[in-house]
C-alpha cells in the first residue's frame, strides 16, 4: 500500500494535512446542509402556525359578522317589526268608517309609533357607524363613549388626545374606534375596574393609543394564548382589526402592579402634525 511506503517527514504532513483539510471542508458542507434543513423545517412550522392563526382570525371574523347580523336581524324583527305592524293596525281600512276623533287619535298613535321606529332604526344605524365618529372624528367619538360610561357613575372614564390635530382616514378611525370599544367593553364586563383612561400620542410616524385601567386585566401572554384558543372572540376581533391597520397591540401590567395598560401602535406615515 502507498500509505505503508511513506517514509519521509513530508509525506505524513501531506497525508494528514490533506485529510484534515478535507474533513474541515466536508464538515463545513454538512453543517451548511443540516443548517438549511433546520431552517426549512422552522419555516414550514412558521407557515403552518401562520395559516392556523389566519384560520382562527377568519373564523372569528365570520362569527363576529354573523353575530352582528343576527343582532341587527333580531332588532329589526323583534322591535321594528311589531312597531310597524302596530302602526299598520291603527291605519287599517276601517279607519275611514270611524268618527273624526277616533281617526285623529289613531293617526296620532300611528305617528308616535312611526317616530319610535325611526328612532330605533337610527339607533341600529348608529351602532353600525357612530355619527360622532363620522362627523367629528375619533377624539369626539371616544369622548362621547366615555361620557356615556361615566354617566353610569360606576366607572370613571376619561380620555386625552395630545396630538390629534388632523383626522385619520375614515376606515382607520373606525377600526381604531372599534378596537377601543371592544377593549372598553371587555374592561366593563370582566375587570371590575374603577377607572379607564385613554391617551393618544403621535411619535415617529406612529399613532399611539394607550388605555389604562385598574381592574383585572390580561398580559401579552394571556392575549396570545386566548387568541389561539376557541375562547375570546372579542380579542380575536381586536387582533384582526389590528392586522388590517398593520398595528401592534400590547397588553401589559405596570411594574407597580396597580393598573393594566393596552397600547395600540398604528403606523401612519402621511400624518401631518402642523395641521
Amino acid at each position: 500500500m502507498i500509505l505503508l511506503q511513506v517514509q519521509s517527514t513530508t509525506q505524513p504532513i501531506l497525508l494528514f494535512g490533506t485529510m484534515g483539510m478535507l474533513a474541515l471542508a466536508i464538515g463545513l458542507i454538512v453543517f451548511i446542509i443540516f443548517h438549511q434543513r433546520r431552517v426549512i423545517r422552522y419555516q414550514s412550522q412558521l407557515q403552518e402556525m401562520e395559516e392556523e392563526q389566519q384560520k382562527i382570525l377568519l373564523n372569528a371574523s365570520i362569527r363576529w359578522q354573523e353575530e352582528e347580523r343576527q343582532r341587527i336581524a333580531a332588532d329589526l324583527h323583534d322591535d321594528a317589526g311589531p312597531l310597524l305592524a302596530t302602526a299598520r293596525l291603527y291605519l287599517n281600512e276601517n279607519l275611514v268608517h270611524q268618527d273624526i276623533n277616533t281617526q285623529l287619535q289613531s293617526i296620532y298613535n300611528a305617528k308616535q309609533i312611526i317616530d319610535d321606529t325611526i328612532q330605533l332604526i337610527r339607533n341600529i344605524s348608529h351602532s353600525l357607524m357612530p355619527p360622532t365618529l363620522k362627523n367629528f372624528g375619533l377624539e369626539s367619538a371616544v369622548n362621547d363613549l366615555f361620557q356615556k360610561i361615566s354617566g353610569s357613575g360606576v366607572v370613571n372614564a376619561s380620555s386625552r388626545f395630545h396630538d390629534y390635530r388632523q383626522r385619520l382616514r375614515p376606515e382607520q378611525e373606525l377600526l381604531i374606534f372599534r378596537v377601543i370599544q371592544e377593549l372598553v367593553n371587555n374592561i366593563l364586563k370582566h375587570s371590575g375596574s374603577s377607572f379607564i383612561h385613554v391617551t393618544q400620542n403621535y411619535n415617529e410616524d406612529k399613532f399611539f393609543i394607550r388605555l389604562h385601567h385598574d381592574g383585572r386585566g390580561i398580559t401579552q401572554a394571556d392575549f396570545e394564548r386566548l387568541n389561539k384558543s376557541a375562547l375570546g372572540l372579542g380579542l380575536k376581533n381586536i387582533q384582526s382589526r389590528a392586522k388590517v391597520l398593520q398595528a401592534k397591540i400590547e397588553f401589559e401590567r405596570d411594574p407597580s402592579e396597580t393598573y393594566f395598560k393596552v397600547t395600540l401602535e398604528v403606523p401612519i406615515e402621511d400624518y401631518e402634525m402642523s395641521n
Binding site: 494535512g17 490533506t18 474541515l24 471542508a25
Partner: peptide
Amino acid sequence: IIYSAGTFF
C-alpha cells in the same frame, strides 16, 4: 471547496 481543500497540501 473539496478540490481546493484536498489539493492544498
